[in-house]
Amino acid sequence: MTVLFTLIIVLFVAVAIWQLVKIFDLAQVSTDTSNGGIATDYDNKVNGYLMLWFLAFIYIFTIICLIYWGHMPLMSNAASEHGAQIDNLMIISMVLLFVVQALTQFLLHWFAFKYRGEQGKKALYYADNNTLEAIWTIIPVITLSGLIIYGLFTWTSIMNIDEDSDPMVVELYAQQFAWTARYAGQDNVLGKANVRLIDIDRANVLGIDEADPNAADDIIVKELHLVVGQPVVFEIRSQDVLHSAYMPHFRAQMNCVPGMITKFAFTPTITTKEMREKPDMIEKVQNINAIRAEKSIELMAKGEEALDPYDFHFLLLCNKICGKSHYNMQMNIIVETQEEFNAWIQEQQTFKESLK
């Protein structure tokens, strides 16, 4: 496929250069007045057939993309309760876009061919056509309104946090270029915090208010652990610039805005272990490790260290370009059973215990 893409790019570059040359020629003052610079029937016929060939190329290329990569937007790897809703909205949008693209491109190129210029034919001029204008205005309005309304209902259902479900409260703290998570502890209430209260000497790296009694049992970690089937509410802060908390498998994303707290909630539906055992995930990991093995051979030949084998993890990523090390801003997310989570959380220090 790399060779195919290279050939396509070379072809496009060649066509672009050819068009530039034609534009340059047209811009020159011509001494040939035999046809007054007007395209002949032959010119129009050639361009008409070229439009049909380009239409065929669009459809063939689209079919190839669907065969090789059509499964990617339809992957059923959502790991949260609302993930299926997001995926369904994406599928509907993609199908509509595909249908509209296929129809409009066909009409555009077919009309360019059918109504190409010919000697003796004169174009029919319409000052206006209320029926056509109503059709191509009303149909997009209805379609887009349906998508927007469906999207709003989907978003509302996702963001409607059910407090009766007793969700776990976790803070996600963003800074260039790392994530820190803070659990609310036994009282499930996060202590107050402000960046002006950051005290590196006392290991208060999040600016937590030490006088707030709710802060004493907070737990600060560098790896996020969640309980499968347990709703979780994220309160999100940023220390410096605009970041974005993005958890792709959970279909979750929320901006991290300095000076304010944003929220996002979801319920994990599958553990990390279960996701690793899925056949498509096993195949993906094997393919990645095969690539890493080849790269490791090259590195070792240069006297460098080999790459570690890859293992699947849910990830928290930054989805805003927040600086030169933006690409490295990520945190592992472990989804596990309640028993496994309890065993892990008991090993962590509370904020009060961590103060120097």
Rank of each mutant, 00 (worst) to 15 (best):
Glu340His: 11
Met75Ala: 13
Thr104Met: 12
His109Asp: 06
Lys122Val: 12
Ala127Val: 06
Tyr42Ser: 08
Val3Arg: 09
Asp212Ser: 00
Ala265Arg: 00
Ile333Trp: 02
Cys256Asp: 05
Tyr310Met: 03
Lys114Trp: 07
Pro309Phe: 00
Thr40Ile: 05
Glu294Lys: 11
Arg251Ser: 14
Leu11His: 12
Ile63Pro: 02
Thr33Gly: 03
Tyr327Gln: 13
Gln28Thr: 11
Val99Pro: 03
Lys356Cys: 04
Leu147Asp: 07
Ala16Cys: 04
Leu206Asn: 01
Gln186Cys: 06
Ile161Lys: 09
Asp218Ile: 00
Phe250Ala: 01
Gly36Pro: 04
Lys302Cys: 14
Asn287Cys: 03
Leu124Tyr: 03
Phe12Pro: 03
Gly303Thr: 09
Thr62Ser: 14
Asp41Cys: 11
Leu132Ala: 15
Ala102Phe: 11
Leu124Ala: 09
Tyr246Met: 14
Ala134Thr: 12
Leu242Ile: 04
Gln349His: 08
Phe234Ser: 02
Thr31Tyr: 07
Asp87Ala: 14
Ile135Tyr: 14
Lys356Asp: 06
Lys122Pro: 01
Thr154Asp: 06
Trp18Ser: 14
Pro213Asp: 01
Trp53Gln: 13
His82Lys: 06
Cys65Asp: 13
Lys121Met: 14
Tyr115Ile: 05
Ala343His: 13
Ile139Val: 15
Leu147Gly: 10
Leu97His: 14
Asn35Pro: 06
Ala39Val: 02
Met281Pro: 01
Leu144Glu: 10
Lys273Tyr: 07
Ser34Val: 08
Asp166Val: 13
Gln338Ile: 12
Asn77Pro: 02
Tyr310Val: 01
Asp164Gly: 07
Lys45Gln: 06
Gly117Lys: 08
Thr143Met: 15
Ala27Gln: 13
Ile208Asp: 00
Ile63Cys: 12
Val195Asn: 12
Trp53Tyr: 10
Thr2Ala: 15
Asp187Gln: 15
Trp53Ala: 14
Phe264Lys: 06
Leu11Met: 09
Val232Pro: 01
Ala245Gln: 03
Phe5Ser: 08
Thr180Asp: 01
Ile334Ala: 08
Phe106Ile: 09
Ile91Ser: 10
Ala306Tyr: 02
Ser296Val: 00
Leu206Phe: 00
Ala178Lys: 13
Ile142Phe: 09
Met300Glu: 15
Asn214Gln: 05
Ile91Met: 07
Asp209Tyr: 00
Met51Val: 06
Val241Met: 10
Asp87Gly: 09
Ile261Glu: 04
Gly303Leu: 12
Leu299Val: 03
Ile220Asn: 00
Leu7His: 05
Gln349Lys: 13
Asn130Ile: 07
Thr337Pro: 07
Gln230Val: 02
Asp25Pro: 04
Asn160Pro: 03
Met300Ile: 10
Gln186Ala: 13
Val29Tyr: 06
Val189His: 09
Ala181Tyr: 10
Thr6Ala: 12
Gln253Phe: 13
Ile92Val: 15
Ile158Trp: 02
Leu108Glu: 07
Asp308Tyr: 08
Arg251Cys: 06
Asn130Val: 11
Cys318Arg: 01
Pro248Thr: 14
Ala215Met: 02
Gln105Thr: 14
Arg116Gly: 04
Arg116Gln: 04
Gln348His: 09
Leu132Asp: 08
Trp18Pro: 01
Leu20Cys: 05
Tyr310His: 13
Ile17Cys: 05
Asn130Arg: 13
Gln253Cys: 03
Thr33Lys: 12
Val29Gln: 10
